[in-house]
Design a protein around this nucleic acid. Structure first.
Length: 454
DNA sequence: GCATGATCATGC
DNA sequence: GCATGATCATGC
């Protein structure tokens, strides 16, 4: 089956692509592809707009120009425009990928230059009414290229270590290894272990796509970048660079740091402000280009002098009525956890109760622990469906959601402004907003696992 | 003392 | 005004 022969240059491809802007897909579709399931819109553009047969070749769609066609959705949210999903590139052949270098890898061969066609997914419209809104010919800028190369090496490193079955999309920053297959049971062989591994594909993370979208569609100005000189990334990983910039401050008290950076604030996010100063960032750390592209979430952890941790870690409140309509496999919470990379900023109380800046840790949830969270999530949904049991004693109202004592990893607890800050339960009653929390004991366990001598 | 319910402070 | 990250505080 041939790839497209009619478009030989990048310019021709871009011009033809841009001509599609504003035309509803139902007018473009000549082969009734829109009625099919996932990927229907991409198929329409390939067949009916560019006029070539759908293929799954290793070469880019426009092979002579070296351009891969990608049609990708975004959505409008109260936080602005966001990519609706990760951009899935090519399936990883564990048996072959480790034999190449990044430059000769399957991912780079296929996707180093892409024609990105963005369309808005609107909740109340059908696919046929959607239109392409923006088209760009995209090549990776140097600062991203170097991070993506490292990401690829991390993924291939796991294959080489016989750990393809332990791959997770959260291992990396921009280029992820996302699961790909009809069911979670879609597995493949790996070269250095007998354990079969989930089928995965190289993909650009949702957060990375959101950044591209805002840059290209909205024309938003670039945000502050932490690593001003991308060449540094040739020597060290992003995480290593951050640690090397910050480690000189380990051991200082919070008071010393506040004085050193001339910060006067009672804000609960002082530690984020301090970290930003250490990195030479003027604005918020979470607004930097790298943090946005990789969806790095900063969390402060205070460790007591006896190594215990008092507080559990909260997440956004969930909507009772929405969560009961979801399945774990495609629910909001799992999706969020799968996409998050955490930066733990660790402070430790010394024996005279001073708060000492102790360390930082880039962390993500290990796959087996995500399964633990699944049980908590499913119990929560089951309880909501049965009707939560509420018992008021004095000023406090007790419930029967999963407690921290019931699961090693997570529990459910209120997360509201006060007890009047409620949402409607599926049965119509009101209840203070709740969220999933990572247990304080679990956080402690994770810190010990990552910092104990190997 | 700890688990769990309750609430604060900020930024957008 | 609300979401969010962070922290307080009651009562078992």
């Amino acid at each position: 089956m041939s790839t497209n022969k009619s478009y030989k240059t990048r310019e021709e491809i871009l011009v033809k692509g841009r001509e599609a802007i504003g035309i509803p897909f139902k007018q473009i579709d000549q082969t009734n592809r829109l009625t099919t399931g996932k990927g229907a819109i991409g198929s329409v553009m390939e067949e009916s707009w560019f006029g070539y047969n759908i293929n799954n070749e290793a070469n880019p769609d426009f092979s002579s120009a070296g351009v891969e066609l990608k049609v990708t959705p975004y959505k409008s949210t109260r936080n602005g425009l966001r990519a609706k999903e990760r951009l899935v590139c090519n399936i990883i052949n564990y048996m072959e990928e480790y034999k190449t270098t990044f430059q000769t890898s399957s991912f780079w061969k296929k996707c180093n230059t892409m024609l990105l066609m963005f369309y808005e997914h609107k909740e109340n419209l059908s696919k046929g009414d959607f239109t392409i809104d923006e088209v760009v010919l995209f090549s990776f800028p140097k600062e991203d290229f170097l991070i993506i190369e490292k990401d690829w090496e991390i993924i291939v490193g796991k294959i080489k270590n016989g750990k393809a079955h332990e791959l997770s999309e959260r291992d990396t920053l921009y280029l992820g290894a996302c699961t790909k297959g009809a069911t979670a049971a879609s597995v493949r062989q790996q070269p250095f272990s007998d354990i079969s591994a989930k089928q995965r594909a190289f993909s650009l993370k949702e957060s990375y796509m959101t950044y591209l979208l805002n840059k290209y569609i909205l024309g938003n100005e670039a945000d502050e970048r932490i690593i001003k000189n991308p060449s540094l990334l040739k020597e060290q990983s992003f995480e290593e660079i951050i640690v090397s910039k910050i480690s000189q401050h380990f051991g200082k008290t919070q008071q010393q740091l506040l004085a050193e950076f001339e910060l006067k604030t009672s804000a609960k996010n002082v530690n984020e402000l301090l970290l930003a100063r250490m990195l030479g960032i003027k604005g918020r750390l979470s607004s930097t280009e790298e943090f946005q592209k990789a969806n790095i979430i900063l969390k402060t952890i205070r460790v007591n002098s006896d190594d215990s941790i008092t507080e559990s870690m909260s997440f956004p409140a969930f909507n009772f009525q929405k969560i009961v309509t979801e399945n774990w496999e495609d629910c909001d919470f799992k999706n969020m956890l799968e996409q998050m990379k955490f930066l733990f900023v660790i402070f430790r109380y010394n024996n005279i109760n001073e708060l000492i800046f102790d360390n930082i840790l880039f962390w993500n949830i290990p796959e087996p622990d995500l399964d633990e969270i699944r049980t908590v999530w499913e119990r929560t949904v089951a309880i909501l469906k049965q009707g939560v049991q509420l018992k008021t004693i004095g000023k406090r109202t007790y419930n029967n959601f999963p407690k921290s004592s019931e699961n090693r990893v997570a529990h459910v607890r209120p997360h509201a402004r006060n007890s009047q800050d409620t949402l409607t339960l599926p049965d119509g009653r009101q209840m203070p907003k709740q969220c999933f929390w990572l247990n304080n004991t679990y956080i402690r366990e994770q810190l010990q696992k990552n910092f104990s001598p190997k």
